[in-house]
Design a protein around this nucleic acid. Structure first.
Lengths: 146, 146
DNA sequence: GTCTCTGCAAAGGTTTTGCAGTAAC
DNA sequence: GTTACTGCAAAACCTTTGCAGAGAC
């Protein structure tokens, strides 16, 4: 994925955000490849690469990037917040042994994606307004089981 | 529901737990009627009723009652732990405006309960071992919408 | 008598906030 | 020049832990 300074600058600009070297390094980390990572994980990885930024800056920018729709977040098995570079609707598998996170392949019911199926069915049956579900299934990954 | 001292004592005993007045008052609170309540909510309600117990005792006993299978817990919209007197498999609706929690009526797909259907289907499709799902759907309750 | 429940206070982990300074626009 | 990003430190939040004492069995 394109992570040149100029492309990051224009990506930020397109989302109404200012450019800064630290913000761009953080965004680049998520654009290199899809990932699920905690604020502390982001902080440690950027420091390891020689980045000079503080944990509060990491939190601040992760929040800003979520607001802008460039990241999304959910809670991991230990209650920590996990940030995800894939912002399209999808669900997660969380490993209770290793903390590992995986995307759930798309599941359809009667030809309708799972999330939308459940949203519509629950709205009909309960009278609640239901947001697009972001489901988290807990279990044990093949890797952690072996 | 039966909440006499003797029934609470025997209920605790059956679950391998000692009786104490504070522990019993806490258990009684959940047995009066089904409820979803945070540790702090439990603490405040018991204090309001004249109970004399500390927040750490509340946390400790909620933990003990969960271990014993008399309560179960999950995370509310603000990340706080919510304790539930209904320990049978069921899913929740969480209101993002009011924090209100409701039980989801049982949903079946192809004649199979939703949780089991998803567990089996995801296990087939991913190779993960999936625990019985406890799903949380976020939305807006009829009450909060009006 | 032993084991565990209890209160208090202190510490734990994660996330947010206040402030003065600096950089982007 | 104005706005907003930054680091640091402190605070906030919810929850757990250590300890000495009291109560259950």
């Amino acid at each position: 994925m394109e992570t040149s300074v100029e492309s990051l600058r224009s990506l930020l600009k397109r989302h109404g955000l200012r450019y800064s070297a630290r913000r761009a390094s953080l965004l680049a980390l998520f654009r290199e490849r899809p990932r699920h990572i905690s604020a502390e994980g982001v902080y440690l990885e950027l420091r390891r690469r020689g980045g000079d930024l503080s944990l509060s800056t990491v939190y601040l920018n992760l929040g800003v990037l979520c607001e802008a729709g460039l990241l999304r977040r959910f809670r991991g098995v230990s209650g920590e917040t996990i940030y995800d570079s894939n912002v399209r609707p999808h669900d997660h598998l969380l490993c209770e042994r290793s903390g590992e996170v995986a995307d759930l392949p798309e599941i359809e019911i009667d030809g309708v994606p799972l999330g939308r199926y459940l949203k519509e069915r629950i709205e009909e049956e309960t009278g609640w307004e239901v947001h697009e579900p972001r489901l988290e299934f807990r279990g044990v990954s093949p890797r952690a089981r072996s």
